[in-house]
Amino acid sequence: MLKIENLTKQFGGLTAVRDVSVTFEKGKINAIIGPNGAGKTTFFNLISGMHQPTSGRIIFKGVDVTRMRADQVARLGVARTFQTTHLFDNATVFDNLIVGHRLRTKSGFWDVVFNTKRLREEEKACRKKAEEVLEFVGLNHAAYRLAGDISQEERKRVAFALALATEPDLVLLDEPAGGVNPEETVGLAELIKKMVRHGLTVCLIEHKMDMIMGMADKIMVLDHGEKIAEGTPAEIQRNPVVIEAYLGSEHAAA
């Protein structure tokens, strides 16, 4: 699904991601963990095309996407969420979601001027998609509430819904459970598993270890931009290098 070879990103003198190679398999939940500032979000920014890597290659579904712009990568089927969800707070949740399917439509300015059949059909398709993804993330009841009035957990679900509206194959989730309580975290984890059951590949960054250990098929650990470990949750928990990175060397010996 996604193959990354020797990926490096430098910001001036700072190397945020250094020589990372990893493969994410189709239909799996892949997690990226690491201390703050380890380069996790930068790694996502590189995959999704927000930043251009300094060197290395990113291959998605057999296509080299290394130098592509973010919108091109999205069109190929990579969706992502952000740590903070920017919604248009003065509009309803439903209104916020309609634009999510825009990348699968073609209507331009002249369609708008002449109100063409294509535009009307595509607007209908976008609304249908919005309804579909709202249903999927379980937010039907909140469709006509203002985006500014919903809870943090509901915002996370809206962010998922937006990502799903783009009809992706791979979803990158940046701290999907950040700022929500433990009960709600369980609900979001369920939702992520549901996404995988529906054929999506998920890659997530998360600090909540119990969530990660319970659901990830594979974990990659980043520290100072370097991949220090990779494996199943059980392997990662036993890995002394990981324990050292998180807790310091004196704990690793114990």
Partner: peptide, 28 residues
């Protein structure tokens, strides 16, 4: 016509957040 169409929604998405709009496949 413009602001109430998909085109207008695209513009509003860019106003909301460049990054999010881009991640949704909008050519900024």
């Amino acid at each position: 016509r413009i602001v109430n169409s998909l085109l207008g929604r695209t513009f509003i998405a860019i106003r909301n957040s460049d990054d999010l709009a881009q991640a949704l496949g909008i050519n900024l």
